[in-house]
Design a protein around this nucleic acid. Structure first.
Lengths: 133, 133
DNA sequence: GAGAACTCCGTATATAGGTACAGAGTCTCA
DNA sequence: TGAGACTCTGTACCTATATACGGAGTTCTC
């Protein structure tokens, strides 16, 4: 019989700490499997990808709560999925726009690194100088 | 005479808390102006944009340390600017790629919201399913 | 020139996202 | 079958990123 996916195995496979898995359970980000009479919980294999997703979404600027929202959309507990998905998409589009601006600025720095730069002007700051505030 | 840009005025204009400005000074993210004999520090006007930049970079997934790095690049304290800028650019490109994948998945959810979704399969998770780990 | 509003400095508190550890029970495998 | 590895629960601790507060001094405004 294949080894059961217990919490330690899950954590190792997904590349996180066991305590992190427990933490995600505590805050409701992932479901805790029913505790079998024996006492050791067994996780479904998809849980590995779910945790990997979380770990990749974080450095994109999503909080755990936002990630929970995204996952819920994917889980298809519909109702207002469409509306919420559209909101998320708009937010993500804004992030892409900002990052693209930043990247363009870095391109400039890279190709013209002989910066005649003794002024208070900072090209990096300019890149996100949206006048929205 | 125009009102001097004291810390309160700076904070208000940039849309942050006074304590946040002090905090950024403490951690070295922005420079604290020399204290005049009177005791009230005066900030240069560019500081407003610098703080706004920080506040826009954070939700893109950058830590304060990473933002400090970016700003330093822009400030042109060269030496290894080119190399560091190239690293940052690569990182940002990866973020853009990931976000684009996520957005594409949301597009799918939005156009085909009648999800025949009773399986363990989750399209959102799939979107970042890079097999890099 | 007096009171309100502001600044300074130091310290304390808050929240998110983990990580660590203790003590007791369970599983695995030679 | 017994030692070592693992899990469970609960609680404590840690870092990053702020935010709040108290008491003393400064500036603005009327």
């Amino acid at each position: 019989m294949r080894k059961a996916l217990t919490i330690g195995c899950l954590a190792r496979t997904a590349g996180v700490n066991v305590e992190t898995v427990r933490y995600y359970q505590r805050v409701g980000l992932i479901r805790e499997p029913r505790k079998p009479p024996s006492g050791y919980r067994v996780y479904p294999p998809e849980m590995v990808d779910r945790i990997k997703f979380i770990k990749r979404a974080q450095p994109l600027g999503f909080s755990l709560q936002e990630i929970a929202d995204l996952l819920e959309l994917g889980d298809g507990h519909c109702a207002d999925v469409r509306v919420r998905a559209e909101e998320k998409r708009a937010q993500i589009q804004q992030q892409i726009t900002d990052l693209t601006a930043l990247k363009t600025t870095l391109d400039g720095l890279i190709t013209a690194c002989q910066s005649e730069n003794d002024t208070a002007y900072c090209p990096i700051v300019e890149s996100l100088a949206g006048k929205q505030a």
